[in-house]
Amino acid sequence: MDASSGIPIERTARPYLIGIVLALILTAIPFWLVYDGALPRETLLMVIATFAVVQIFVHLRFFLHIDFSTTPRENLIALAFAAVLICIMVGGSLWIMFDLYHRMMV
């Protein structure tokens, strides 16, 4: 963030190029693994999840330019807070709903 204008200045396209390359790699591997279908289902799901999480961080870093030095602190706190709440809401909802499912439908 540039202190004088309030508008971030992006001098080079470098982060975007790094970002697109990493994103394409991180996308291609799970797609190819699924296409190939050699791995067992459980392993594949783990791999997909891992690559997705890594790719989210790549996008945050190289496309949204989040880092710990220049991003304003309150933006980082808001992001962390959102992440925590999303975990609580999604995790809690799935826990509740699948608990119900097992008790009522199976």
């Binding site: 709440l85 609580i88 809690g92 608990d99 119900l100 008790r103």
Partner: peptide, 18 residues
């Protein structure tokens, strides 16, 4: 306040654990 919502539907079939 984000961790208590199920107490509005205790009676709707959740297990004792939940």
């Amino acid at each position: 306040s984000f961790t208590v919502w199920l107490h509005h539907f205790f009676t709707m079939g959740s297990s004792a654990r939940v």
